[in-house]
């Protein structure tokens, strides 16, 4: 069994060069799925008999909330990989994932508020899911703040990776406790094990959007990681050759 691929994965240079080939595919697939999903969901899916057209915000809200949670795990797992195998690249991925996840959490909260006004009659309710998303947003902000607080980059990497891991242990507890605390949000519509309570004509565009969001997330994460690699490795030979700087460039 050869572990060479695994060690190669830890090299930012290798990743940068390989990902150049992936980027157009990822971006193209993400954008085409998203445009299909948006047109299908906003234009052709039937109107909800109770909520009218306002329900269509789920085509943004649900995928963003999915990715906000999944993104936290992606961030924490890459942080853990960095702590365990001391991989440079995984710390870069972790740092790149934090602002993207925070932005997605914000989108989920914002679209939820916009949807809440016509449906519940208020922008903000202290309900279990909204509150736990808000706490997730704070967890993201904490990781971002801590990673930026250290003057030495490696310490910031490790400290924020550890904080992300502690948060991972806490997320189920926070979720459950907030759930116990108060619940107004409707129960989860999509279930893996049971039949979902959504009509297929609304469900397929939603699935398309979720897949599109996943690809979009991967695309943005790769782009952000590549930028951070260039920033971090700015002093190495290959980056200088790449950006065509002959004189020692200072960012």
């Amino acid at each position: 069994m050869s572990w060479q691929w695994f060690h190669r994965l830890g090299s930012p240079r290798w990743f940068y060069q390989k990902s150049s080939a992936w980027l157009p595919w990822l971006g193209g697939a993400a954008l085409s799925l998203l445009s299909v999903g948006v047109v299908w969901g906003l234009g052709f899916a039937p109107e909800d008999f109770k909520q009218g057209n306002s329900y269509r915000i789920i085509y943004i809200h649900v995928p963003a909330a999915f990715l906000a949670l999944a993104g936290y795990y992606i961030m924490a797992i890459s942080g853990a990989i960095g702590l365990i195998w001391k991989m440079k690249l995984s710390f870069v991925v972790m740092r790149a994932a934090a602002p993207i996840g925070a932005a997605l959490t914000f989108i989920a909260l914002f679209t939820g508020a916009v949807w809440g006004k016509p449906t519940w009659g208020t922008y903000w309710v202290w309900d279990a899911r909204i509150t736990s998303m808000l706490i997730l947003f704070f967890l993201y902000l904490g990781v971002m703040a801590l990673s930026g607080a250290f003057s030495r980059e490696q310490s910031g990497d490790k400290a924020s990776a550890l904080l992300a891991l502690v948060g991972t242990v806490n997320i189920p507890i926070i979720y459950k406790s907030v759930d116990w605390w108060f619940t107004l949000h409707q129960p989860a519509t999509l279930k893996l094990t049971e039949a979902s309570t959504i009509d297929p004509s609304m469900f397929y565009p939603l699935i398309t959007m979720i897949a599109g969001f996943y690809l979009f997330y991967a695309w943005v994460l790769t782009l952000h990681t590549r930028t951070m690699i260039l920033q971090r490795e700015g002093r190495t030979q290959w980056v200088r050759e790449l950006v065509g700087a002959s004189a020692p460039a200072k960012a």
């Binding site: 550890l162 502690v166 806490n170």
Partner: peptide
């Protein structure tokens, strides 16, 4: 945990609150 993470920083006060508060939520609720 937060105190240990921020002990090397010069002025950790607000940062400590920012990173630890979300983790306090379950204790506060119960």
């Amino acid at each position: 945990v937060g105190a240990a993470l921020t002990v090397a920083l010069r002025r950790p006060g607000l940062l400590l609150a920012l990173i630890i508060m979300p983790l306090y939520v379950p204790v506060l609720i119960f």
